[in-house]
Design a protein around this nucleic acid. Structure first.
Length: 642
RNA sequence: GCCGGGGUAGCUCAGGGGUAGAGCAGCUCACUCGUAAUGAGCAGGUCAGGGGUUCAAAUCCCCUCCCCGGCUCCA
């Protein structure tokens, strides 16, 4: 008997019976065997030193790919648990999966971990890695597993719930052992702890068992692990880069906005430099919507509870709303968490005809949501924010075409702000839903078509739709590879029902329109924050609060500097003259730190010859540039996309 | 909301029972300068807020607010 495997390139590989994945890798090449940490047969990952089946497609997993890192991190999580159980008497452990860029493990040691604990744990982990302990797979029946893990109630709970793929075949569960330490695990793992060449513990946090806030809170340790020390260092650099780009930090440094404690959590004030950019974004948004067939509407910030009752918000969203204010002898008013009910009332303000559809209403509507105190995060998650909110009312026949044009419009706008890399989630019908399932299915197919036509990669999130309709969430990737959920496109079969909306058809019958919600920036504040982080504060010229700084070399050049600035301002550019009592070097430094796209230096020769010294963002300085040419080039640099 | 860590000058941070500190920023003066920090001087504080312990609290204790990292949440 022999083993016959098929390699990824289709070629066969024949091995003696009993050969392991490692043998197979070695047969392909010694370098590959060294790099291998696990193998894949017929798509299923297996331990490197497990015996191979008789046939199958064969692939080697190395540590420098996503799957390899996944295994590496999972193994690192085991070593973390081994260290913690060894160091803390009575410690019990729960789950420890790999996650994006790292891993975590949840423990209960009867108290929180301290930073000193973390150092000790990391040191113990290093010892375990240095000892190069093998990971040994064991399989036993559930009953035996319950005995082995009798002291660890969370493990017992996991064993009792194992049946879908967590363990090995049938009634058996698998576990991995290194020395005294044993952990329940599906595997695979790296062959031995010595393969964990680069790891680091990052932080601790409280985490509920099984993510349920009614259940015990465990202490979680987060760590990261990489295939080489270099890859680890690169990752730590990326974290540092993200810290430098933090919009909350840039907001202070560039004097854009602040969150005064007196206002309360999650509420920002916009300083002049931030407000001007925000105004440009909002102005762009309004212009662009108007140019694409939307009608501008406007609505108040509060409404009677009756409205929120009809819309269903008081039933489904009450905990996200600020408490009611009692006015006018008993009438309750609530701050709006969403704009849709108002737009619906505009639709319903008179009889509508099919001739008016699709109706597209657009509003920069400021909403207030009572976010739980622990989730507020700068501009990204605030309690008051402005949505670029649209609601479309369409016939069923118009739905497909409307969804396509909405998605295309969305992508056009995101591209105007410099984003090119999109991914989407398509959320489908959940268990509890309203409306006609046939219509659901049709709408979901339209959304998928729209994504296909736009060439956007998407993942289907089965059952993740809201109860009132399927939706698309559009994500962007920023300059350092982070994914942000930005736009949503949401079909709504519920609200037209709640409000009894209808329109007159060509046959003079009455039909119910379908409603579509769409926020494009999502929230102006949040999108601003994402832009700031994406551009690390150096906003594109058209969005920059100050587009050019004019620096006079000496006081006698101040008049000329002001002339130059006035000329630029006449072209619609935002210009400052730095007349501070400082050296040229310092004034340039200040302009560069403030991320101004253009710096103009003017001295004696410039006054004589109507020129400037020009330094555009990312370029070297240039002397003696004629004033007109400089203005032209700055205007180009700062031109709005439309 | 929950777990943990924090809040000292505009910013970054030191000080941890005995009169509040530094650097940067700010202001004043001098310098008049050609591409990333000119020099000197001055001013700046209810140590987040409130209560308590103490002869004495920025420092120790309690409550509240706000921030940070997670969890949960984000119909």
């Amino acid at each position: 008997m022999s083993i016959e495997l098929t390699l990824p390139d289709g070629s066969p590989l024949v091995l003696d019976d009993g050969a392991t994945g490692y043998d197979a890798a070695a047969a392909i090449g010694p370098r590959l065997a060294d790099a291998a940490i696990a193998v894949k047969v017929d798509g299923a990952a297996r331990d490197l030193h497990a015996a191979l089946p008789a046939t199958g497609t064969f692939e080697v997993i190395t540590a420098d790919g996503e799957e390899g890192r996944h295994i590496l991190r999972h193994s690192a999580a085991h070593v973390l648990a081994q260290a913690v159980l060894g160091l803390f008497d009575g410690a019990t452990f729960a789950i420890g999966p790999p996650i994006e860029d790292g891993f975590y493990y949840d423990f209960d040691i009867g108290r929180p971990f301290t930073p000193e604990d973390l150092e000790a744990i990391e040191a113990r982990m290093a010892e375990i890695v240095a000892a190069d302990q093998p990971f040994e797979r064991e399989e036993f029946p559930k009953e035996r597993a319950l005995e082995v893990f009798a002291d660890h109630p969370f493990k017992v709970e996991i064993i009792q719930s194992v049946d879908e793929g967590e363990g090995a075949a049938g009634d058996a569960v698998s576990a991995y052992r290194n020395e005294q330490f044993i952990d329940l695990c599906r595997g695979p793992h790296v062959p031995s702890t010595g393969r964990l060449r680069a790891f680091k513990l990052l932080r601790t946090a409280g985490a509920y068992w099984r993510g349920d806030d009614k259940r015990p809170q465990l202490q979680r340790i987060y760590g990261t692990a990489w295939e080489t020390p270099k890859a680890l260092a690169d990752y730590l650099d990326r974290l540092e880069e993200a810290r430098k780009r933090d919009h909350r930090k840039l907001g202070v440094e560039l004097d854009l906005f602040s969150f005064p404690q007196e206002l309360g959590s999650g509420l920002a004030v916009w300083h002049p430099k931030g407000a001007i950019t925000r105004m440009i974004m909002e102005d762009y948004s309004t212009r662009t919507h108007l140019a694409h067939g939307y009608d501008l509407v406007s609505s108040p910030h509060i409404a009677r509870s009756h409205l929120w009752q009809t819309s269903g918000h008081l039933d489904f969203y009450a905990e996200g709303m600020y408490p009611a204010m009692e006015l006018d002898g008993g009438d309750e008013y609530l701050l709006k968490p969403m704009n849709c009910p108002f737009h619906i009332l505009i639709f319903r303000s008179r009889a509508r005809s099919y001739r008016e559809l699709p109706m597209r209403m657009f509003e920069l509507g400021t909403v207030y949501r009572y976010e739980r105190s622990g989730v507020v995060h700068g501009l990204m998650r605030a309690r008051g924010f402005t949505q670029d909110d649209s609601h479309m009312f369409v016939t069923e026949e118009q739905l497909a075409g409307e969804l396509q044009s909405l998605l295309d419009f969305t992508l056009m706008v995101l591209r105007d702000f410099g984003f090119e890399d999109f991914e989407a989630d398509l959320s489908t019908i959940p268990e509890k839903y309203v409306g006609d399932p046939v219509l659901w299915e049709r709408a979901t197919a339209y959304l998928a078509d729209a994504l296909d036509n736009a060439g956007i990669e998407y993942a289907v999130a089965e059952g993740e739709g809201a109860f009132y309709g399927p939706k698309i969430d559009v994500h962007i990737r920023d300059a350092i590879g982070r994914r942000w959920q930005i736009s949503t496109l949401q079909v709504d079969f519920g609200q037209p029902e709640n409000f009894g909306l209808e329109y007159a058809t060509a046959q003079n019958t009455r039909e119910r329109p379908v409603m579509i919600h769409r926020a494009l920036f999502g929230s102006v504040e949040r999108f601003f924050g994402v832009l700031l982080e994406h551009y690390a504060g150096a906003l594109p010229g058209w969005l920059a609060p100050v587009q050019a700084t004019v620096v006079p070399v000496a006081d006698r050049h101040l008049d000329y500097a002001r002339e130059v600035a006035a000329g630029l301002a006449n072209r619609g550019l935002r210009v400052e003259v730095d007349d501070a009592d400082e050296t040229v070097g310092e004034k340039i430094r200040r302009a560069l730190l403030a991320k101004h796209p253009a710096v103009l230096v003017v001295g004696d020769t410039d006054v004589d010859e109507d020129t400037v010294g020009l330094r555009l963002r990312g370029e070297d300085e240039e002397r003696g540039v004629p004033l007109g040419e400089a203005a032209e080039r700055i205007a180009d640099l700062c031109a709005a996309p439309r």
